[in-house]
Amino acid sequence: MGIKKKLGMGVASAALGIALIGGGTFAYFSDSVTTQNTFAAGTLDLSVNPEAIVHIENIKPGDSVTKEFVLGNNGSLNIANINLITDYTVADAANNNVDDFGKHIRVNFLWNWDKESEPIFETTLYDLKNMDPDVVKKDLWDPFWQQNSGLAPGDTNELWVQFEFIDNGEDQNQFQGDNLSLQWTFNATQGDGEDL
């Protein structure tokens, strides 16, 4: 082995020895902490009172009825929209209907007192089946309508609705003894996600 190799090996060995000695004696401060984190999902809990908004017997053409009901948010999240879904079935007592009974029952208005808005104005149950109005939306003429729409946790909205059996001045005998079962589903949805 040449002198250069021996000298190089000696220097490398010395450097390794110093590193091992220095590494063994080198000390530093350290600390650690563990965090406990949770993600708890909020809830949407829509209520309606009363659950049966209208129950009428012996209705005849020209009769109308006005009813009041309350929608409430019992959940922990804001409800952005409550869309009304309409469905109904007709029991034809005499099996003689040539027209849909739902075309003869009109919703004259659905008024939200808390939003001062009218989500429904003069439409039949038949036509309402093809709509899904937002019943807690503030009227657009209000410059702050977006902030006032929806239903915050713990809030309620009082609504009034009027139904009318339309008297069309024609023979409506086909509906005698018939029964229309109306199902209204109030479909609540949350707002957009936000940076918390």
Rank of each mutant, 00 (worst) to 15 (best):
G2N: 05
K5H: 12
L7G: 08
L7V: 01
M9P: 14
V11R: 07
V11G: 10
A12M: 04
S13W: 06
A15E: 11
A15N: 09
A15R: 09
I18L: 15
A19H: 10
I21M: 06
G22N: 10
G23Q: 08
G23T: 01
G24K: 01
T25W: 13
T25A: 05
F26R: 08
F26W: 14
A27S: 10
F29Y: 12
S30T: 11
D31W: 12
Q36E: 15
T38Q: 10
F39S: 08
A40K: 14
A41E: 14
T43F: 06
D45F: 07
L46D: 03
N49I: 14
N49E: 11
A52W: 11
H55Q: 10
I56F: 01
I56W: 09
I59Q: 10
K60P: 15
K60L: 11
P61E: 00
P61F: 04
T66S: 07
K67A: 10
K67Q: 13
E68W: 06
E68S: 15
F69I: 02
G72N: 14
N73M: 03
N74C: 09
N74T: 12
G75H: 06
S76I: 07
N78R: 13
I79S: 02
N81A: 13
N81V: 08
N83P: 00
I85F: 08
I85D: 06
I85P: 13
I85M: 12
T86S: 02
T86N: 02
D87V: 12
D87P: 06
Y88L: 03
Y88Q: 00
T89Q: 13
V90F: 00
V90Y: 00
V90E: 03
A91F: 14
A93D: 01
N96K: 04
D99V: 09
D99N: 07
F101V: 05
G102K: 01
G102T: 02
K103W: 08
I105Q: 01
R106D: 01
V107Q: 01
F109H: 02
F109S: 00
L110H: 02
W111A: 12
N112H: 05
N112F: 02
K115N: 06
E116G: 09
S117R: 04
S117M: 11
P119C: 01
E122H: 08
T123G: 04
L125V: 06
Y126L: 10
Y126I: 04
K129L: 05
M131A: 12
P133S: 02
D134W: 10
K137T: 05
W141Q: 15
D142V: 03
W145M: 04
Q146I: 15
N148K: 15
S149L: 07
L151E: 00
A152K: 13
G154I: 11
G154K: 05
T156E: 00
N157P: 03
E158D: 15
L159R: 06
W160Q: 13
W160H: 14
V161R: 02
Q162N: 11
E164P: 13
F165I: 07
F165G: 02
I166M: 14
D167H: 05
N168T: 05
G169E: 11
E170V: 15
D171C: 03
Q172H: 05
Q174L: 07
F175N: 00
D178F: 08
W184L: 12
T185M: 07
T185D: 03
F186Q: 03
N187E: 12
T189V: 13
G191D: 05
G191Q: 03
G193T: 03
E194S: 05
E194L: 08
D195N: 14
